[in-house]
Design a protein around this nucleic acid. Structure first.
Lengths: 122, 122
DNA sequence: GTACAAATGATAAACACTTATCATTAAATT
DNA sequence: AATTTAATGATAAGTGTTTATCATTTGTAC
């Protein structure tokens, strides 16, 4: 039987309110507002389950630990701040991008990551 | 004093002949043709030095270990095969890409990775 | 309220990659 | 050829993230 715990609610709420991809440690920090004892193991467990359930999806940024974001967001890409290391959503996507592949290469998907400075760090 | 060893020559030759980004383990495998006893520690040591010397640069693909490629290659991006997990160069780059960032975000650089199936795996 | 078992939290273990150690090998100089 | 010492190879140790363990807590059903 599946239980609805305070910690699990806190984790979902953090994602709903964050609006950007989060690493597990960020979820712990953000979640303590709603569940003071929230531990890292619980975050890993619930994030894994939420991905399996299709509520979260993974966001992999080169060189960084895996981040997670709401699966309901439509196709988009990300901006990573070199100062605070937070990731943000970027909307829009160049049409022609998949056609950059050389002949004979079949493209299934793509990732774009912009790097720079976010407004808070400018 | 700096020495020019058989292993170091083998490592450079692998990159010159490969034409694509390589993970350290691929360098070991490819380098054994030219230096039969080539070990992984030597590859890590030399790759690190070749990056410091500006002869190689790093290529980071989400979720993968760091790859290395010739620093002399002009701006380009990469294709990663989901079957064989090898990375390939992709030339061309959409102009407008940096302008996708929302107002207030300063873009310094970007990465594009295409995923799919390479000709050898199709 | 009790009973039951899922979930949690603290932490140890696992895991994958990278770096350090050190005895041995082999470039470079004489 | 002998000398010097940088570089190598095998492997232990380190690093950062993720998963497993297990005693304890706490939802849920009765």
């Amino acid at each position: 039987m599946q239980r609805e715990t305070k910690q699990r609610r806190a984790i979902r709420r953090v994602f709903l309110e964050s609006g950007r991809p989060l690493v597990p440690e960020e979820v712990v920090e953000g979640g303590k507002r709603f569940a003071a004892t929230l531990g890292i193991a619980t975050v890993y467990r619930n994030v894994k389950r939420l991905v399996e359930e299709g509520w979260l999806k993974t966001v992999e940024i080169p060189g960084d630990p895996v981040r997670y974001e709401l699966a309901s967001h439509p196709h988009h890409h990300h901006f990573v701040c070199r100062d605070c290391e937070r990731a943000f959503d970027v909307h829009g996507c160049p049409q022609e991008i998949d056609s950059l592949a050389p002949d004979g290469f079949q493209v299934e998907s793509h990732e774009i990551v912009l790097y720079g400075t976010c407004p808070a760090c400018c």
